[in-house]
Design a protein around this nucleic acid. Structure first.
Lengths: 161, 161
DNA sequence: CTTGAAACCAATTGTAC
DNA sequence: GTACAATTGGTTTCAAG
């Protein structure tokens, strides 16, 4: 699917504020409200926009601690096995198979360090898990919503360089 | 700040669909539309809800490749130095200081593997960086929006276990 | 593909409980 | 704290370019 400049600008506006009115977005990108709606509908149908979500402060909900956990699995473990198992843990907010020594990397959110420990203990007990290696997050330095730089990935980086 | 069951249910509804009407949310949580609005306004003022964002498919925007990069820094490097430097790279969508051997972990989104390589090269050239260790993401298994499990972090996990 | 108007419906405010 | 009613204003559809 092809996205033109207008589509990208609309997406950028919606990433910044998903509750902006079509008229506001139209004013920003130079389109009428109804034209913006047509494009947003199309972007949703084609899957470029997958939904709209509130951004929440994890700490306000009691999620005070994060950790990253490397997973070392048995030789014959399939990614789908890992996916299925990890989906059962609400604390696992992200997981991916990766290159390198570890087979997968997990991102965990928990109430406190004790909670992280309990979750890792359970994950380590999964049949296909051989070993885990955990890193607790000390402080978050950067946290951008996906698509925050919607303009064009082919732009040079770092900004201004 | 105290969040009751209703607040958590409202947040969960807004994480699922940030463009839901107050009436719809009210129907789900058992409140009138105006009561929901009052609470949403309060949740925004107190910072529990920090905004509303479109969820986008990174691939639709041309971001086809992700990587995690461990950063090993010089002894006297401050977290704020890392934060400041990393904020200049649009490809660095998340960064955190962590426990363990590495000083920080970066999450990078790029167009392709060559793009990842270029970005890491630039980051490795930062004065405070001693060494990097990268893992390319092969496949994403789990990806939840922050606050997807808003009900209560003290709930047992895994679900049903 | 766009705009612009009209009908519809939600957001918001004020009032009462 | 809540619900209800009235006004304001946004969304959505349709005709037309």
């Amino acid at each position: 699917m092809e996205l033109d400049r207008l589509d990208r600008d609309i997406i950028a506006a919606l990433v910044e504020d998903a509750r902006a009115t079509y008229a506001e977005i139209g004013h920003d990108v130079g389109l009428s409200a109804s034209a913006v709606k047509r494009r947003v509908d199309r972007l949703r149908e084609t899957g470029a926009i997958t939904g709209f979500s509130a951004r929440v402060a994890p700490r306000a909900l009691g999620w005070n601690t994060e950790a990253y956990v490397e997973l070392f699995c048995q030789g014959k473990t399939k990614p789908s096995d890992i996916a299925l198992a990890m989906a059962r843990y609400p604390e696992v907010v992200a997981a991916a198979t990766i290159t390198g020594e570890a087979d997968a990397l997990l991102h965990i959110r928990a109430t406190d360090v004790r909670h992280v420990e309990r979750v890792i203990e359970r994950i380590a007990a999964e049949t296909f898990v051989v070993r885990t290696k955990s890193s607790i997050v000390l402080s978050r330095l950067v946290d951008l919503p996906t698509g925050a730089v919607a303009s064009d990935p082919r732009n040079g980086s770092p900004v201004g360089g």
